[in-house]
């Protein structure tokens, strides 16, 4: 299929997703852009707003094989990565792959697991490979992690440190639906039951093709100038604990490429950068005086307003 056809298909996929997750078109689009930019996604919200449904729906629409792991405090790294089991018949260890060997891993309530397990997952996310018993196993392509976490629940959770949060390209918050959509939800019944009925818009090969096309979206020098001054401005601000990392900067451009692709453009515009900036900084930037992990919707707008766009 040609890239244009892929774009059309994706547009249809977005429409389908919007019938499942009601009233959140911007968030859905951001999630999709995140995956197309080869980024991992963190969905953070209170329970019951459809985090898991969204993750399911994404996997479904993209036509990817997926696994779900419910993270708990007693989950061990091996429970995710897999274990080597001694085969008596063949007199050798066989590696039994864990749930991570899939194309889309849904890590539910990732902050409930112990730091050791968290770091094992996050390493895999970064390297796109796992090591067990001295052997390296390459993870499938494409490989995404969609993690969810509940910010309110503090008891018995291990908050992800900044270094690990940085590995998620975006953090998306869904929030409560508005009145009309809530009514539709109440009338419509369980949304997850709709999932089997929506067809896959793409398959794994298609996702890889789209990812390549996203990488081809043109990034002009003028745009890099703009992105750079945005990133620099976060580092110069005195009211932030930390600025954006170089990895976050790369992610910003990639995400903007994906956003532009979804909008059907062949080159990135400053508007694309501005659109993906809020979920990109949501889990990375924090004001010095803010309560931890509190949502700060005004910060992104502030940063954008502070950096003039040169003509």
């Amino acid at each position: 299929m040609s890239p244009d056809a892929d774009a059309l298909v994706l547009a249809r996929a977005l429409e389908t997703l919007e019938t499942v997750i009601l009233g959140k078109p911007a968030q859905i689009r951001l999630c999709l852009a995140c995956l197309l930019a080869r980024g991992h996604l963190l969905i953070e919200d209170v329970p019951g707003v459809g985090k898991t449904t969204l993750a399911h729906a994404l996997a479904h629409v993209l036509g990817l094989a997926w696994q779900r792991v419910q993270f708990t405090s007693d989950l061990l790294p091996a429970d995710i990565i897999g274990v080597s089991i001694f085969d008596r018949a063949q007199q050798r260890f066989n590696f039994r792959q864990g749930p991570i060997f899939t194309q889309l891993l849904l890590a539910d309530e990732v902050n409930r697991a112990s730091p050791r397990t968290q770091s094992a997952l996050l390493e895999a996310m970064e390297e796109r490979q796992v090591s067990a018993d001295g052997t390296t196993y390459v993870l499938p392509e494409p490989f995404f992690v969609v993690a969810t976490q509940n910010p309110r629940e503090q008891l018995g959770t291990f908050a992800l440190p900044e270094s690990q949060l940085d590995r998620f390209l975006m953090r998306v918050t869904l929030g409560y639906p508005d009145a009309a959509h809530e009514r539709a939800l109440l009338r419509g019944g369980e949304r997850r039951e709709l999932l089997p009925h929506i067809g896959a818009a793409l398959d794994a090969a298609g996702v890889l093709r789209v990812q390549r096309a996203v990488r081809e979206v043109h990034v002009a020098d003028a745009l890099l100038d703009y992105a750079q001054s945005l990133i620099a401005s976060t580092r110069e601000r005195a009211d932030l604990k930390l600025g954006l990392s170089p990895r976050a900067g790369q992610g910003l451009v990639r995400a903007a490429q994906a956003w532009a692709y979804l909008a059907g453009r062949r080159s990135v515009l400053p508007e694309d950068v501005q659109a993906v900036l809020p979920p990109l900084i949501a889990h990375r930037l924090e004001r010095r005086d803010a309560e931890p992990h509190g949502p700060d919707p005004g910060l992104a707008a502030e940063i954008i307003r502070a950096v003039p766009l040169s003509p």
């Binding site: 515009l269 508007e271 501005q274 307003r305 950096v307 003039p308 766009l309």
Partner: peptide, 20 residues
């Protein structure tokens, strides 16, 4: 162009991109 727009009552914000 932006100045002409400004005179016509539409002032570009410094951070505003062309499509916005």
């Amino acid at each position: 162009l932006c100045r002409a727009l400004g005179r016509a009552g539409l002032t570009r914000a410094p951070h505003e991109g062309p499509l916005a």
